[in-house]
């Protein structure tokens, strides 16, 4: 698809919708989690308030250039992932900037934010941040491995690296979804999905209830607000990739919202039932259960 200038405002519109959906969805998920614990949970608009509050902090301190760039990298990881993958299939407006090889780029962007965060948190000089980043990188690496294998399997299956083509191949009936045509790859990817969502049982890295909160220990005010924005975008962007690769994509916004919500609920359901893993346990879990599935998926294809 050739580049046209009109794509930029279209992409920004996608971004706007996704940010708001992300904020509300995150609050809704928090509410669902709270309901499981028989609490009322946060108000549905709480994330907006936190965001305004953090932007309105008057003083902020810096630890150097990378400290500034950390949240920026993180956010661009989320935004980039979203923008280079078609959000709504067959819609010119919301296909964003997708192109023939976007699958590889998407894989890269998934990791990009974490790496940027590592640089920023390292610069902050706080020991908890360093601990958090090394834990986070270890866990993300372990959880990305089965996802990458599943993606290779899917790419082999459809003989293409373009997300749009993969979605196109799944149209027609739900039986054409990768979920049914390549279930092993989907299983491996969904196990990896649990780890990538930073929800329990894999959220020891940056759970605010843990004493070392992890990479964002030193982040505050606008930096933190930037990272909060990313926390709204990144899970959605990640789930868009999943939706496109494995669950047939979406042809309209209502279907998009529904599918994203249901995919998110997978990790929520697991999260409210199981307690947190240590990082070393979660790495072992990914390597023992998810990676073999991914390898089998490639071999079967």
């Amino acid at each position: 698809m050739a580049f046209e200038w009109i794509q930029i405002p279209y992409a920004l519109l996608t971004l706007f919708i996704v940010v708001n959906y992300g904020f509300i969805l995150n609050a809704l998920i928090a509410k669902i989690g709270a309901r499981v614990g028989r609490r009322h949970g946060i108000p549905i608009w709480q994330n907006y308030l936190d965001l305004i509050k953090n932007y309105s902090i008057r003083s902020s301190i810096t630890h150097g250039v990378m400290f500034y760039l950390g949240p920026v990298f993180r956010l661009s990881g989320g935004v980039g992932l979203l923008l280079f993958v078609p959000t709504i299939y067959s819609s010119v407006m919301f296909s964003n900037l997708s192109f023939a090889g976007d699958l590889i780029l998407a894989l890269y962007f998934v990791f990009f934010g974490t790496l940027g965060m590592a640089l920023g948190a390292g610069e902050s000089g706080h020991p908890f941040a360093a601990i958090g980043v090394s834990r986070g990188l270890a866990q993300v690496t372990a959880s990305e491995l089965p996802f990458a294998l599943a993606v290779f399997s899917v790419a082999l299956q459809y003989q293409t690296l373009s997300v749009t083509d993969i979605v196109a191949a799944q149209q027609g009936s739900y039986l054409n979804w990768t979920l049914f045509t390549n279930p092993i790859a989907v299983a491996a990817a969904m196990l990896s999905f649990l780890g990538a969502m930073m929800r329990p049982p894999f959220d020891v890295v940056l759970a605010p209830q843990e004493i070392p909160i992890g990479p964002p220990t030193e982040y505050h005010s606008s930096y933190l607000a930037l990272m909060q924005t990313n926390r709204a975008i990144f899970p959605i962007a990640k789930m868009v990739v999943y939706m496109n690769l494995f669950f047939g994509g979406a042809i309209s916004w209502p279907i998009f919202f529904l599918k994203i919500f249901l995919i998110y609920m997978v990790s929520v359901l697991v999260g409210v039932v199981f307690p947190r893993f240590h990082v070393e346990h979660s790495i072992r879990w990914f390597l023992v259960w998810a990676v073999p599935l991914g390898i089998i998926a490639i071999m079967v294809v």
Binding site: A34, R39, P208, T217
Partner: peptide, 19 residues
């Protein structure tokens, strides 16, 4: 805890003074 649940008033606890 569920009985008092301060989170519904927008109150939460952060582990670091920066935030």
């Amino acid at each position: 805890t569920p009985r008092f649940d301060a989170y519904r008033y927008g109150i939460q606890w952060r582990p670091t003074p920066r935030q």
